[in-house]
Design a protein around this nucleic acid. Structure first.
Lengths: 191, 191
DNA sequence: GTCTATAGTGGGATAGAC
DNA sequence: GTCTATCCCACTATAGAC
């Protein structure tokens, strides 16, 4: 059994996925976690504090299921594709994560406080991916014309765009995966 | 001088770009438009009604500046690139549009009422782009391997992702344009 | 650390005059 | 069609007991 603060964070993460960052009500979190609202204020100071900690919590959790892609294969191209595909899955915690991430991005447009958290996480993601593309390029000389950094930025941006369409019901999960695979092929193609 | 409802919609569009859909206060809109809050309820029934009409208003307006890309050149590839680049500009009304569009997408994840509006507009955008890619393919036989529909969906999704990064200050406007140009090249490349 | 009870308030919505 | 005035509720946040 996790400790109280963690239980509250888990409840908050679930609710962000259902209602969004902006729709998150402290009272709802307390009900979902089975505690009083006062306890939330005791542990997290105010709504903003709860929000920040929840976003960090979700971010830490995301790394876990993405990293599993590395055990799947030694081929950097396969790893790359898997990492991107794993951002969109029908599992509850992955959906939670994508939804929260989308909310963070959307909220950061109007809330400068969140921008640093967003920028840092985005940079790490881009750099990780650029590293994999770099390795894929070394393994296959035909790819020498690929700009690893730019390709990485385009792929992550595309995944974010596709993710939002998936979450909003505009695009099916299957189609989303096809689009991502197609994008990897288009980017990692001899010039 | 536009009529009152239009003035209100213009004010609401400006405010959505500044505060977001969720941050939109009816009272603020009334102040910005120089009318009473009661008048807004008279014309739009409630806050949701105002929101819907504003989103539609913004959508109609967006078509105008994008369509100007067709006068620029007869080359479908140039038109295609221009259409995408024009989604991200430093002009106030374009920024307003991108911000509102981003908010619509993000909000639709949690608000089924907005999904239809979003899905229709997205489909039209994709189809327009797919048409251009189709024409580019006919003009250049080397592109015969390109799946116009899929490429269009990937490009629009990428533009949405890049747009969000631009608006949230994660990526500069210049870099955003580079990424879009690069994506067009990656997609419209002989197989 | 955790609760119950309640204060405070921002902002959506309406009544009624003109 | 448009305004002034006001109601009222949903939410955040705190006080104080245990």
């Amino acid at each position: 059994m996790p400790d109280r603060p963690t239980q509250i964070l888990e409840a908050a993460a679930r609710l962000i996925a259902r209602r969004g960052v902006r729709g998150l009500r402290v009272e709802e979190v307390s009900a979902e976690a089975g505690v009083s609202t006062a306890l939330i204020y005791y542990h997290f100071k105010d709504r903003t504090g709860l929000l920040r900690r929840t976003l960090e919590f979700i971010n830490r959790r995301a790394v876990r299921y993405t990293d599993a892609a590395f055990d799947l294969s030694d081929d950097p191209r396969t790893q790359l594709t898997e990492i991107l595909l794993r951002e969109l899955q029908d599992a509850p915690d992955v959906r939670e994560n994508s939804a929260a991430w989308g909310e963070l991005r959307a909220t950061a447009v109007f809330d400068p406080d969140l921008r640093e958290l967003l920028a840092t996480a985005t940079r790490e993601w881009n750099d990780d991916l650029a590293g994999l593309i770099h390795r894929a390029r070394e393994a296959d000389p035909a790819l020498s014309g690929v700009d690893a950094q730019a390709a990485a930025e385009r792929l992550t941006a595309l995944v974010e765009g596709v993710s939002e369409r998936w979450l909003s019901g505009t695009t099916s999960l299957q189609r989303a995966h096809e689009l991502i695979r197609g994008a990897v092929e288009a980017e990692l193609r001899p010039a």
